[in-house]
């Protein structure tokens, strides 16, 4: 195998397709986190919510066989955990970083506990099937890369313009942005900071629940302890990388996914010497962090991020 193999059409298509699949769960989680952070709440519990969403939806498919019900379960789990996170960080005004880590630990432990008690050993399930889009999926190159995925992968990419539209074109988006930048000003205009933050945290957590489900019932169709392997934390980093814009998050998720796919392909084809393959495996994280350091201007950071709001404080 040589360098020329990397540039064969099927390998390149494979890398691109793989990058898109890998970006799926990051997109749900990071877009959700974007909403939360734009309103001023840092939710570090994303990974825990993902794990419980992943397990809950996996378990529903395992017992009922219904992917639809399973997705609903992930939504519900995300909402409930979001409500909890919002209560702790908005109403009780707890330090957000710590309450987020608490939520993560809860999700990590609880998903594993339930898995051990209810399932035991890894058991594959039938998740969302591949859903090639008629006609479009037949287009050479583009078809296999973009139009031969499962429902949740399409959903993740559709979410980006929807999120950008909500944030930039709607009155709700305006309120979210204002609350994250200057909650006092929003409050002085009769906007309920609490209401907006509950909404975004719950919406963000719901998307985190779907992010977990996209792994367990669409991409991997299995559950295992710590299935997310820290993806939720990478997702939080991607929000910074994307400068709190859905399109920026998309760029970050694709960059991460494509580098990971490229490294995998390089390893597979023997282009990366075995002696450095372990280091190469860390490249997605390293490059993303480097890009983060180099490109991010914190100018766009929501000024009230991590700051609880109380009138007259």
């Amino acid at each position: 195998m040589g360098l020329s193999d990397l540039f064969s059409a099927s390998v390149l298509i494979g890398i691109a397709t793989s990058g898109i699949r890998l970006a799926t769960s990051y997109l749900y989680a990071a877009i959700g986190e974007t909403f939360s952070q734009r309103s001023g709440v840092l939710n570090l519990g994303v990974d825990g919510i993902m794990l419980l969403g992943a397990f809950g939806s996996y378990y529903v498919v395992l017992t009922t066989g219904s992917q639809g019900l399973a997705l609903a379960a992930a939504l519900l789990i995300g909402m409930i955990l979001g409500l909890f996170m919002a209560f702790v960080s908005v109403t009780l005004k707890a330090e957000q970083g710590i309450s987020g880590i608490g939520l993560y630990l809860f999700g990590f432990g609880m998903s594993d506990l339930l898995y051990q008690k209810l399932v035991g050993t890894p058991r594959p399930i039938a998740g969302f099937p591949k859903l090639p889009i008629p006609l479009l999926s037949d287009i050479p190159v583009i078809g296999p890369i973009l139009f031969q995925h499962n429902l949740l992968t399409y959903g993740a990419f559709l979410l980006v313009p929807v999120a950008a539209f909500i944030l930039n074109k709607t009155t709700l988006g305006l309120q979210i942005r204002a609350v994250g930048q200057n909650p006092e000003a929003a409050d002085s205009l009769g906007i309920s900071v609490t209401r907006i933050r509950y909404m975004t945290v719950i919406a963000g957590s719901t998307l985190a629940g779907i992010a977990g489900a996209s792994l367990s019932i669409a991409l991997l169709n299995i559950f295992q302890q710590n299935l997310t392997n820290g993806q939720g934390f990478i997702a939080v980093a991607l929000v910074y990388f994307g400068a709190w814009r859905p399109t920026g998050v998309l760029a970050g998720a694709l960059l991460y996914g494509l580098i990971a796919a490229l490294v995998l392909a390089g390893n597979t084809l023997g282009l990366i010497p075995r002696s450095v393959s372990d280091i190469a495996a860390m490249m997605p994280a390293i490059i993303t962090i480097l890009a983060l350091v180099v490109t991010v201007s914190r100018v766009r950071e929501p000024a009230a991020l991590t700051k609880p709001y109380g009138r007259g404080e």
Partner: peptide, 14 residues
């Protein structure tokens, strides 16, 4: 005022 918003957005807010 929200510095990262435009004048019109600040006026329309809420």
């Amino acid at each position: 005022l929200v510095p990262t918003l435009t004048v019109a957005e600040n006026v329309a807010l809420g």
